[in-house]
Design a protein around this nucleic acid. Structure first.
Lengths: 113, 113
DNA sequence: TGATTACTTAGTCACATGGCTAAGCATGAT
DNA sequence: ATCATGCTTAGCCATGTGACTAAGTAATCA
């Protein structure tokens, strides 16, 4: 496990906001323009752009401007570091359970001798 | 997928800080007291307690005070909501890929006719 | 009893976050 | 050429975050 992966900071922080998660859920079904994305949200454009900026800074989305329309899309595999950290955490936990189990087993064995 | 799960806010936000992730990694190997946990960090006690408070508020850890020592432990399965959201996101993405694939296949078929 | 330990509370501070309005500026439509 | 659209920039404001010091409290040790 990486000691202090700075990308996890931005990724997890970006995911910690419901607006941003909703944007990602929307983008999972396909690319969309900024105004299309912002339509469901009762929020001024600059505020909304701030969220997109964070998602892009975290590497979760890309955006490209054609004419006056900026189109956003998910970056495939961008969730991997987050998923991996959570998996590694789970593995650590299971390893601990195994050690604990071995300890208890040994204890029982010692007592029966 | 839950529409706006507020617990995801606190969980992901809690994970967005390297100090807090390090605390969780340490706790995955077993429970520890506050001062044991704080030892590796060059940080004043109240600052460190703030992190523990956030982890506990997010439901990721529990703590119990016995005498003057507060012992902290991981809450097993507390990562599940975060893992689930990421999985659901991956599924959405794969569903989109499938649709896209079907679309391309159909397109090729139409052209060949 | 008195000192030490292990938090805990209170208060301060700098900066980040998340929202807003107002105004600017290309691009595309008429 | 003019106007509407789709961002974009700039600036403001309230609140939240993460750090600190200093002082307080309760439990244990000598």
């Amino acid at each position: 496990m990486a000691k202090h992966d700075p990308s996890l900071d931005t990724v997890f922080s970006a995911l910690g906001d419901p607006t941003r998660r909703a944007i990602l859920e929307r983008l999972a079904t396909g690319p969309a323009s900024v105004s299309d994305l912002s339509a469901p949200f009762a929020m001024a454009m600059p505020s909304f752009m701030g969220h997109l900026k964070k998602l892009e800074a975290a590497g979760l989305i890309t955006s490209d401007k054609a004419g006056r329309v900026r189109t956003c899309a998910l970056v495939p595999g961008a969730f991997a570091p987050a998923r991996d950290w959570l998996s590694a955490q789970k593995d650590l936990w299971n390893a601990r359970l195994d050690r604990f189990d071995a300890f208890v087993t040994q204890l029982a064995k010692d007592q029966s001798e």
